[in-house]
Design a protein around this nucleic acid. Structure first.
Lengths: 113, 113
DNA sequence: TTCTTATGCATATAATTTCTATGTATTAAA
DNA sequence: TTTAATACATAGAAATTATATGCATAAGAA
């Protein structure tokens, strides 16, 4: 994910949130959606995406469904019940992370909370 | 750093910013300052901190200075010129990261900017 | 028509970062 | 006198992501 390694650890959160919002998506679609939303600033590589999706599947957070579209196979991913719960957790963790990082780098935020 | 792995990749940014703000600090002081600012939510482990500080030193971003305080050695770290420049870069990257993550997880922010 | 770009899946190996566990040593407090 | 706090450090493991590569189809450009 580019030269900025702050994104390390956030891939799962990104995937879960997008699936939470779109019901079902396939791999390539996820990479394009991320690129679109971040205006090209963040590009998910396939070498990161697919292992991550497979892990989500193995952990029971997503279900998969193959479908043929335009004579080409697509593997759709969708959240399970467990995946929806985990999405909530991950988003809360992201909020905590942002709040703590703001406090650390911006002294103005230190007395707030 | 706890169970939240979003912090992966942010340790360097945290250290640089604290050094930028305090002129000189020693390792243990950094761990305590982080704990204090985040109200205990983030604890930097020594196994992460010292290798990171040594890398910053090897890369010429910090200078070191040993000093004996209360009959105990302290190794103080302070930013070099290069380190100050890198701090600016890292903080800008953090802002970009937060902006992109907000856009990804909060559709409301997508039309802004 | 052939080459390139876009679409779509995937893995192997490496690189990076951080964690866990461990070690040494001094000081202060219970 | 034993525990907690202070202070440094490393070895090895774990987790995450990047780089490079492979296969295959479709569409558009040259």
């Amino acid at each position: 994910m580019k030269t900025n390694n702050l994104y390390k650890g956030s891939l799962t959160t990104i995937i879960l949130k997008l699936l939470n919002e779109h019901d079902k998506m396939y791999g390539y679609e996820i990479t394009q959606k991320v690129k679109e939303i971040t205006k090209g600033e963040l590009n998910i590589t396939e070498g990161a995406l697919y292992p991550s999706l497979h892990k989500l599947e193995a952990d029971g957070l997503v279900d998969v469904e193959f479908r043929k579209v335009n004579n080409r196979m697509r593997k759709y991913y969708m959240l399970t019940e467990l995946g929806t719960q985990e999405t909530v957790n991950k988003l809360a963790q992201l909020e905590d992370y942002i709040r703590n990082m703001r406090a650390l780098v911006n002294p103005k935020f230190r007395t707030l909370d």
